[in-house]
Design a protein around this nucleic acid. Structure first.
Lengths: 125, 125
DNA sequence: TACGAATATTCTTGTCAAGGAATATTCGCT
DNA sequence: AGCGAATATTCCTTGACAAGAATATTCGTA
């Protein structure tokens, strides 16, 4: 799961996310990215290094050029991780919370709130 | 798409990711998180603030306690974003690149490489 | 009303990461 | 051999941010 952190950190930088989006269309040499982004060549190289360290990107050497390509693995991992959360919006799980909240608004508060507290927000569930 | 950045930034911090994982099991008061994480209460509150600002989390007030709950929206967005990349590992797209790379290893380089350059890594695709 | 529980906020400090500028490296070509 | 193109690396400065410590706020309750 520290792999997940590396992925998030890499993608949290706007320019890097942009690079990833550009590479979605296929492998590209550095110069191509430099022209698309509002960045100078050294920064692009640096960002590519970070992406590479995070395993998000792969280099292929072609003479003086380096062709960078997306590596699917980290994104697959990300999708895998996300799946654990899908029930949050697929099932009506968790919205139970909002429902109870609404109910609470149309009642006197003291006794009922204690019930809710034990039922949902309990500290020792 | 700056929303995506906010999500990534929020999740890029290990403790915050941990909080999110904990909240996956349902809404929880701050104290519960404090006990689970290796963090002091103020830091947890701060991290919750960041998560809240990123829209990843929601508060419900219950007397002195604040019950935090995951908000599905940003994660849904994330999944949506990821879908654009799914073809990277579903189709055999992009692995074309690795294939050509392997071929290259078992041939003389000069003429062939020029062809590859134009075909794949071109600067003006 | 005073107190304690639960949580938030402020201030400070150290660390790390991103951009800028300059330079180094590598390769093809003539 | 030397030059220019393409890319990487280094050094520096600055800003953001996380942790620590201390304090403030809010609420229920005796």
């Amino acid at each position: 799961m520290p792999a997940m952190i590396a992925t998030f950190r890499a993608l949290a930088e706007p320019n890097r996310l942009h690079i990833v989006e550009l590479l979605r269309q296929g492998p590209r040499p550095v110069g191509h990215l430099v022209r698309r982004l509002r960045l100078r060549q050294p920064q692009v190289s640096k960002h590519l290094r970070v992406l590479s360290a995070a395993g998000l990107v792969d280099v292929r050497v072609d003479a003086q050029r380096r062709i960078y390509a997306l590596r699917p693995a980290p994104l697959q991992q990300l999708e895998l991780w996300l799946e654990k959360y899908r029930r949050l919006w697929e099932g009506n799980f968790q919205r139970l919370d909002a429902l109870l909240d609404n109910l609470k608004s149309s009642e006197q508060k003291s006794r009922k709130k204690k019930h809710l507290r034990r039922a949902i927000g309990s500290d020792h569930p």
